[in-house]
């Protein structure tokens, strides 16, 4: 992991990359849902209890995909803001340096107006940066909460699978495992991203 105090823009880029992976996994989850629906249909009456579960899996996939997309967008906006912030911070640093080096110059205060403007711009960027981090971390915890349902869904799926008869049992248990696996992976990505975000705050 990079040093967040100097390389926060790198951290932001890493968050965006992690969430891009989460989107891909969520797309697999969506595939799993349509797979499950097909199996449940073939299993007929005995898998009747499984069918409504496939809707829930679908919904979970949908929420995960749309939320991941939103988080991705937030992360890329944050990435741009943090790059601007690096530039602004950098300029301010140079100004400070010049104020020290040329402190005896009769013209040193001719820089004041521009320095004030740069500082105001830096303040604005800082506020924007903090607001965007808050939005990002809110969205991350929202998605993380949603994914808790995946464990319940997987448990219910296993119960229903055991009643679907030997022929379909394995396929349906597989569905349950996929849901749990995908949700677990996404949660790991989110957890990692949340940790990264907390270093930015």
């Amino acid at each position: 992991m990079s040093d967040p105090t100097t390389n926060y823009f790198v951290s932001v880029a890493e968050i965006a990359a992690k969430l891009d992976q989460a989107t891909h996994i969520a797309q697999q989850l969506s595939l799993t849902a349509s797979n499950a629906r097909a199996v449940a249909l073939r299993a007929g009456e005995r898998a009747a209890g499984f069918r409504p579960l496939t809707d829930f899996i679908d919904r979970l996939a949908e929420i995960t995909i749309s939320s991941s997309k939103k988080i991705n967008l937030l992360a890329s906006t944050l990435s741009r803001t943090s790059a601007d912030k690096v530039r602004a911070d950098n300029a301010i640093e140079h100004f400070h340096d010049v104020y020290v080096r040329a402190k005896d110059s009769p013209f040193i205060h001719s820089l004041d107006a521009q320095f004030d403007l740069c500082e105001a711009a830096q303040q604005k960027l800082n506020t924007k940066y903090r607001r965007q981090i808050d939005q990002l971390s809110d969205e991350l915890s929202m998605l993380s909460n949603e994914l808790r349902n995946a464990v319940i869904l997987a448990t219910l799926s296993r119960v229903e699978a055991s009643q679907a008869g030997v022929q379909y049992q394995e396929a349906l248990i597989n569905v349950a495992n996929n849901v749990e696996g995908a949700a677990g992976k996404i949660k790991n990505h989110i957890h990692y991203s949340q940790q990264m975000v907390s270093t930015l705050e």
Partner: peptide, 17 residues
């Protein structure tokens, strides 16, 4: 070189010049 340059220049002329 920027800081060194701006420092050197600002000793000679005001920035807005």
């Amino acid at each position: 070189l920027f800081s060194a340059m701006l420092s050197a220049v600002i000793k000679q002329v005001p920035a807005d010049k």
